[in-house]
Nucleic acid binder design. Structure first.
Lengths: 138, 138
DNA sequence: TCAATAATTGCACTTCCGTTGCATCGGTTG
DNA sequence: CAACCGATGCAACGGAAGTGCAATTATTGA
């Protein structure tokens, strides 16, 4: 279990008890989580702490923020060694309209797009909506 | 100017004065608009009316809703004959991080993605962030 | 034409999420 | 031990989505 602490420290984040708990929870759940999801899981935790913890995590490359079209920000752990900020690591996300869960499809990268003259791409976000494998009955 | 009325009627929406104004405003501005943008443009209009008008428009294929990653829903007119619900018409959107405007790139379609086993795609949303042509100095 | 009906609009209000300010706690360092 | 700095908790604000209901406007049929 020292792994988590090391992961945090390696990314320049002090491994406090709260942070370790949050990290573990996110690792256990394999879907992207909204602030409220985590808040409900830790009755004791304050919303602000979670908010700032996630922001700290994001700033240090531990989680990435996901906009899945629900207008609610969600967060998911980055894979070790991932560098979300670089174009290479832009995987896509799948939002299930049945169970309302969002997952990272880290194997599926966003294809390169040719933009019209004058447009400069810096980031990309691709969300597919539909039925996930759990809900499609296999 | 009868065009607008016809467009609305053809889509099963009664062409009231308010709706015509909103439609014209959206046609004039060529970017995707948030509820608040329209609200500010029509000081007299009530927020609820705009909200429901846009929903009516969306349900009848006159506008499509865009989630550009700002967590604020935006709306843009569909092209005549477009059918947003079908996969064919899924164009991508560009959000400029400088001027904060979002535009439809109707010529650029979302490429087909091969999903893992068990996932069923029903809709897709691709947003590219960066600098738009106006802001890139050409 | 006029009443009855249905659709549209406006007002008030609620809820939810993101965000900030400030006080407090707790660990680290000199 | 004292001073400091980061982390946490509490309270509150603001913006946006959404709902209920009353008032208004348009449409229909007698």
């Amino acid at each position: 279990m020292k792994e988590v602490e090391k992961r945090l420290e390696d990314n320049g984040v002090r491994p406090t008890a709260m942070r370790i708990l949050i990290y573990r929870y996110m690792a256990e759940k394999e879907v992207a989580l909204a602030l409220t999801d985590i808040e409900n899981a830790f009755a004791k935790a304050d919303r602000t702490t979670l908010y700032r913890t996630l922001r700290t995590f994001e700033e240090n490359g531990i989680v990435h923020q996901i906009d899945d079209g629900t207008n609610i920000s969600k967060y998911a752990l980055c894979e070790p060694g991932c560098n979300c900020e670089l174009d290479q690591d832009l995987h896509l996300h799948f939002h299930c309209t049945n169970c309302d869960e969002t997952v990272c499809l880290t194997q599926q990268k966003i294809p390169h797009i040719n933009l019209p003259e004058g447009y400069i791409a810096e980031d990309a976000n691709l969300v597919i909506k539909g039925i996930c494998e759990k809900c499609s009955g296999q």
